[in-house]
């Protein structure tokens, strides 16, 4: 395995006045060069916090309490602030959900791009600017020279997200974490950006972690998929395998709730119940209250265990026997 990034048993907890919120609670996955991992889950399942943990952007009262994050084989947890800053935007880059909010409204695009290069290497502004221009061209922005002198409000949402992607690509990072970057865009732009990101990562050998709640996006984009529920990875495997034959009842429920044209006119399926509050979550399988296949032994916490080749599932009773 040629993994650029390996996350092992990561736990990020928030120590609030109301109690400890286990936002990320035992998350493991790995991504290889040029491959795309889809990190799927509902709101509050801890997928964004997993991304922030890898970036070292967890603010107080949050803290990474356990686990390892191996970047090119080196554990980056426990790095000094300054060392971690040197990795951010350089070896690991991140793209955020809302392109209207991620660019600073009062700074020109060139300022915001050049500073991203100069934070990591000594380079003249002229040379840095040329690299920024090239990056804008690469993400499909026309008349890049002129655009560098513009302000964010002069761009549309899709264009801004392209700029954010160009910024993420500037330092040729090993890993890009994309936190629902197409959720705020309309469907045609979403399609373009998905296609372009896929091509960019394949060509540059950058690994991509695509955080989303949208299974249909992941289906066409990712190589592997990690499904998260209540801070834990509940299922991990190749996209084809996981989507064709889900092992975890939660994955199965998620897939069943995607609207399909074969069931036109029928009520949409949903998973009964609500996601548990991460505050009052006890031991045991977090999904058991909503699970149709619940057994007495689900009161114990299931481990994430290998099922078949390259597949893992966190369930005592994987769905193989049931009809999916």
């Amino acid at each position: 395995m040629n993994a650029v990034l390996q996350v092992e048993n990561l736990r990020t907890h928030f120590f609030t006045k109301a109690g400890v919120v286990k936002a990320v609670d035992d998350v493991s996955f790995s991504v290889e060069r040029g491959k795309i991992l889809g990190l799927v889950g509902e709101s509050g399942s801890g997928k964004s916090m997993t991304g922030y943990s890898i970036m070292g952007l967890i603010d107080a009262p949050g803290k990474i309490v356990d686990g390892r994050i191996l970047l090119n084989g080196e554990n980056i947890i426990g790095l000094k602030h300054e060392q971690w800053r040197g990795l951010r935007g350089n070896r690991v880059a991140m793209i955020f959900q809302d392109p209207m909010m991620t660019l600073n409204p009062v700074l020109r695009i060139d300022t915001q791009m050049i500073e991203a290069i100069q934070a990591h290497e000594k380079i003249s502004s002229v040379n840095a600017r040329e690299r920024c221009r090239a990056a804008l061209v690469r993400v499909g922005i026309a008349s890049a020279d002129e655009r560098l002198n513009s302000y964010p409000h002069q761009f549309s949402g899709g264009m801004r997200q392209r700029v954010a992607i160009a910024i993420a690509l500037l330092n040729k990072p090993d890993v890009i974490i994309a936190d629902e970057p197409t959720t705020a865009l309309d469907v045609t732009i979403q399609g373009q950006i998905l296609f372009e990101m896929q091509a960019l990562c394949r060509d540059s050998g950058t690994a991509l972690i695509w955080i989303t709640h949208d299974l249909s996006v992941v289906a066409g984009l990712a190589d592997h998929i990690a499904v998260m529920y209540a801070g834990k990875v509940v299922e991990y495997g190749s996209v084809a395998k996981v989507l064709d034959a889900p092992l975890h009842p939660y994955t199965q429920g998620l897939l069943a709730s995607v609207p399909s044209r074969n069931r036109r006119g029928q009520p949409l399926k949903q998973i009964p119940g609500m996601t548990p509050s991460l505050l009052e979550i006890g031991s045991g399988c977090a999904f058991r209250e909503r699970c149709p296949y619940r057994m007495p032994d689900c009161e114990a916490t299931p481990p994430l265990s290998p099922h078949a080749a390259h597949r893992q599932v966190r369930c005592f009773h994987p769905v193989t026997g049931h009809s999916a």
Partner: peptide, 15 residues
């Protein structure tokens, strides 16, 4: 978000 994004670019706190 723009502050978080600026930090994600690896800028120093001063900047």
């Amino acid at each position: 978000d723009y502050v978080k994004f600026a930090r994600a670019k690896g800028l120093s706190n001063t900047r």
